[in-house]
C-alpha cells in the first residue's frame, strides 16, 4: 500500500484533536503526580513506623505492577463498589498515581540531598518548622529536582496512549478509529509515531537546557 499525502491531510484535524487531549491528560496527570508524589515522600519520612512502612510497600507495589492493569482496576473494579469515574478522570488518576511513586523518589532524593547542617542551622536560628521548610530546605531541594521531574513529565506524555485501552479518545485512539474506519493503517499509525517523536525530541532539548540551568546547583 502506498503512502497517501492527501489522506494524511484529511485525517490531520482528527489527529490534532487527539493530540490536544493527549497534552491535556499529560498536564493533569503530571499535576496529580507532583502533588501525590510529595505526599508519598512526606509520608515515607513519617515518624510513625506503620505509616512509613505502609507507604513504602504501597509505593513498591504500584511501581512493580503495570500501569495498564492499574487503569483497568480503576476503570472496571471501582464501579463495583460504587465509584464510577469517566474514562478521562480514571486515566488521569491512574497515571498520576503511578508516576507519583516515581516522583516520590525524586522528592526523597532532593530532600535528603540538603545537608544536615542546614536543618541544624535552621533550628539554631530558631526558625519554625514551616519557616525552615519554606525558606531553607525547599529553595535548596527543589532546583536540582526539576530536570528529573521534567523527565517524568516526558515519560508520562509517552505513556498516554495506554489510556486508549479505557476508551479515552486521545491521539492513539483517534488514529485507531480513523484506521479502523478507512482500513488504512500506515498513515495514522505513522503520524502518531511522528507526533510523539517530534514532541519528545523537542522536550529533550528543553530538558537538556533545564539540566544545564538547574542540575548543577546540587554539586
Amino acid at each position: 500500500m502506498e503512502w497517501d499525502w492527501a489522506f494524511v491531510w484529511q485525517i490531520m484535524p482528527t489527529l490534532l484533536e487527539g493530540l490536544k487531549l493527549t497534552l491535556l491528560i499529560t498536564l493533569l496527570a503530571s499535576a496529580v503526580a507532583m502533588v501525590l508524589g510529595l505526599g508519598f515522600a512526606i509520608l515515607r519520612r513519617s515518624s510513625v513506623a506503620v505509616v512509613a512502612r505502609g507507604t513504602g510497600w504501597f509505593v513498591e507495589f504500584i511501581r512493580g505492577t503495570p500501569l495498564l492493569v492499574q487503569l483497568y482496576v480503576i476503570f472496571y473494579v471501582l464501579p463495583d463498589i460504587g465509584i464510577r469515574l469517566p474514562p478521562l478522570v480514571a486515566g488521569v488518576i491512574g497515571m498520576g498515581l503511578h508516576y507519583a511513586t516515581y516522583t516520590a523518589e525524586v522528592y526523597r532524593g532532593g530532600i535528603e540531598n540538603v545537608p544536615r547542617g542546614q536543618w541544624e542551622a535552621a533550628k539554631a536560628t530558631n526558625l519554625t518548622a514551616r519557616q525552615a521548610w519554606l525558606h531553607v530546605i525547599l529553595p535548596q531541594a527543589v532546583p536540582p529536582m526539576i530536570p528529573a521531574l521534567a523527565n517524568y513529565l516526558i515519560a508520562m506524555f509517552k505513556e498516554t496512549p495506554l489510556l486508549s485501552a479505557i476508551t479515552v479518545l486521545e491521539l492513539m485512539n483517534q488514529a485507531k478509529s480513523v484506521a479502523n474506519s478507512s482500513y488504512r493503517y500506515i498513515e495514522p499509525m505513522t503520524m502518531v509515531g511522528v507526533f510523539f517523536l517530534a514532541i519528545s525530541l523537542v522536550s529533550v532539548v528543553i530538558l537538556k537546557w533545564l539540566e544545564h540551568r538547574f542540575g548543577k546547583v546540587a554539586k
Partner: peptide
C-alpha cells in the same frame, strides 16, 4: 536510541503489528 526512546512502546507495538 532517540527513535525508540522518543516514542512509547505502545506506539511502536502498534506500528510493528499494523504497519
Amino acid at each position: 536510541i532517540e527513535f525508540f526512546r522518543g516514542t512509547s512502546i505502545f506506539v511502536q507495538l502498534f506500528w510493528v503489528y499494523f504497519v
